[in-house]
């Protein structure tokens, strides 16, 4: 974990330009080690998807990258080089994409071309990245990949609409691993699936990661899921990172009130049953952010200072936190106050 695959510094994304631009992602900094799993959690509209689409330059208009750096390290040893994804030319990006960074989206049904057989998807990716000289060679690689994610090889001859949701998502995962990428970005890959399938896929992902050693950014709003899968967890709110820590630390001692709220909104996949409380209110509109801490209006611990001043993200070795109430255990105080 000493060497990082991806280093992101002061990354910001706007929607629109000029006066009316909305800040979707503000000043995000993190680094991701080789074979490491970074979990990003947050509600809808917290900027977690915008963050990764921005980093991979897949952002659609009117999304604009305002500032920052995203250094991707590719290649081994002497052939190693650093590429700033945000500065890379269209051509460099094309050869980088999928070979080094691949993406899995939430809805596998819409992510697969509806009029093509699954096998074609594999064939195309391998062919355009110059792997597998003959069709038969690419086919056998595709068979290897779908077998790896627990599918029968005859699925390759099917169309996307002929597969179940879980099968489709497995196809997407196999496809994402086709070129042995250094980094796989998963944008809520299990959100649309039932709990049992979700469980299976998470287990599979963990196993595949151990075997193939790719790094992963895993986006979800389900914190309990991340605790099982991720090495590090980053919690985002209104486009900012509010807390970042090793997943075990974050789970046992969450320090940001928002993290606590998220944690209480989801039943853990394992362990005893606890009553769910959730977070009152809804996330703020990014075009009309409150003056101080964006979470203050929903925070049970908010003070006058929180309403007037934006808490900076204090970066420490084991944890980063953007909250004025960090001195004592937030969880205890929250329990008392509720």
């Amino acid at each position: 974990m000493s060497e990082s695959v991806l280093r992101v510094e002061n990354f910001s994304v706007d929607y629109g330009v000029g006066e009316r631009a909305v800040r979707a992602v503000t000043d995000v900094t993190f680094s991701l080690g080789r074979s490491e799993v970074l979990g990003i959690a947050g509600e809808s509209g917290s900027g977690k998807s915008t963050l990764v689409y921005g980093l991979t330059r897949l952002l659609r208009a009117p999304g604009v990258i305002r500032s920052g750096k995203a250094i991707l390290r590719v290649g081994e040893d002497s052939a190693r080089r650093d590429i700033d994804l945000l500065e890379a030319s269209e051509r460099d990006l094309r050869s980088l994409r999928w070979r080094h960074v691949s993406v899995v989206l939430q809805s596998a049904l819409s992510a697969l071309d509806p009029v093509r057989r699954i096998g074609k998807e594999f064939d195309e990716v391998l062919r355009y990245h110059g792997q597998g000289k003959s069709r038969a060679e690419r086919r056998s690689r595709a068979e290897e990949l779908v077998t790896m994610v627990g599918l029968k090889t005859d699925r390759l001859d099917r169309f996307p609409h002929e597969l179940s949701g879980g099968q489709r998502q497995r196809v997407m995962i196999a496809l994402a691993l086709a070129l042995n990428p250094d980094l796989v970005i998963m944008d809520e890959p299990t959100t649309a699936l039932d709990v049992v399938t979700q469980r299976e896929i998470i287990d599979e992902l963990r196993e595949l990661r151990e075997r193939l050693g790719f790094a992963m950014i895993f986006i979800t709003h389900d914190l309990s899921l991340l605790v099982e899968l991720a090495d590090q967890i980053m919690v985002m709110y209104a486009g900012r990172v509010v807390e970042r820590a090793d997943s075990a630390d974050l789970y046992s001692i969450p320090r940001h009130p928002y993290t606590v709220g998220l944690m209480n909104s989801f039943p853990p996949l394992t362990g005893e049953i606890v009553p769910m409380t959730g977070i009152p209110g809804s996330p703020p509109s990014l075009s009309a952010l409150p003056r101080g801490c964006a979470f203050a209006p929903r925070c049970p611990l908010a003070s006058d200072r929180c309403l007037n001043e934006t808490p900076p993200l204090l970066v420490e070795e084991s944890r980063s936190l953007a909250c004025f109430n960090s001195s004592s255990s937030v969880r205890e105080r929250l329990v008392i106050s509720s």
Partner: peptide, 14 residues
């Protein structure tokens, strides 16, 4: 606007 077109870009296709 569909995801599979975004994916085609993400796959590094020309």
């Amino acid at each position: 606007g569909e995801d599979f077109v975004l994916m085609a870009v993400a796959k590094g296709l020309p």
